[in-house]
Design a protein around this nucleic acid. Structure first.
Length: 256
DNA sequence: ATGGTCGGCAACCGA
């Protein structure tokens, strides 16, 4: 069995105790973290010394940043996209136990009228080419992270009101679906085709308490890995700790 | 309810 998880930390340094506790209590083989919000020279490596995890990361000041934790040997590492701008603080590929683990923090997009939104749409297209260039759909590939898209109406608490948001509008659905069409299965939906399951709740307005959430973190895999998927779930227990992230831990287990 | 709350960082931007 291999257990793979993803978590948008919204600052790894502010979420140190939550991450350390979760790793020691759950012992995933791989944890992909987004929004570490720390420069590489300041990454809190010492805090994880003796944890049993190797960590690869790329960050920048204030914004973005990704890290991949593994307690199995990391066989390969690749930072960034392969065209310009490489955007290293948003994507790390590792190969672990023969599985390509692609940890992404997809740009949020700010507002539909902004250049950042166009950049987001292009980012999905660039990512699709990245997959197509490296892998075939017979390879073991897991794509996970904060995708900044809620793909269907049941993935947000109020689709009518939220329609038009940069994470919930047709251009984003199409861009995400186009990457998926290369050969990915949405592992949560394989197990729970119609359940209301969220991974993110805005800090504002008591949305967690009222369960006004979004499903914007995803775990997708190629068919040979999807066939081995045995469990997929959101772990909300860290939300009950002090100063939680606005996202939860999201986990998939495979019979490998 | 067109507001609300975080984190980083040092004024506001990003989410």
């Amino acid at each position: 069995m291999i257990k793979i998880a993803t978590f948008n930390a919204n600052s790894i340094r502010s979420r140190l105790e939550i991450v350390k506790d979760w790793l020691s209590n759950n012992r995933p083989d791989v944890l992909c973290v987004q929004e570490t919000k720390v420069q590489d020279k300041d990454f809190p490596l010492d805090e994880f010394a003796g944890s049993g995890y190797d960590i690869v990361f790329r960050g920048q000041k204030s914004y973005n940043g990704v890290a991949t934790f593994s307690r199995l040997p990391i066989e390969e590492v690749e930072y960034g996209l392969d065209d310009e701008p490489k955007d290293e603080p948003r994507i790390i590929r590792t190969k672990i136990k023969g599985i390509n683990i692609v940890n992404t923090y997809v740009p949020q997009g700010n507002s539909p009228e902004s250049d950042k939104f166009q950049y987001k749409l292009q980012w999905y297209a660039r990512l699709k080419r990245y997959f197509a260039k490296r892998f075939t759909t017979d390879d073991m590939v897991a794509w996970l992270g904060d995708m900044n898209v809620a793909p269907t109406d049941i993935d947000v608490h109020n689709p009518a009101a939220l329609l038009g948001h940069v994470c919930f509008r047709p251009e984003v659905w199409e861009a995400f679906a186009d990457v998926k069409s290369w050969g990915f299965t949405d592992i949560l939906r394989k197990h729970y085709p119609e359940e209301i399951i969220y991974t993110f709740w805005d800090y504002r307005g008591g949305s967690y308490h009222n369960n006004r959430g979004w499903r914007i973190d995803h775990i997708l895999t190629t068919p040979p890995l999807a066939a081995k998927s045995i469990k997929c779930y959101v772990d909300k227990t860290p939300r009950e700790q002090e100063k939680p992230s606005d996202h939860t831990f999201f986990v998939a287990e495979f019979d490998i």
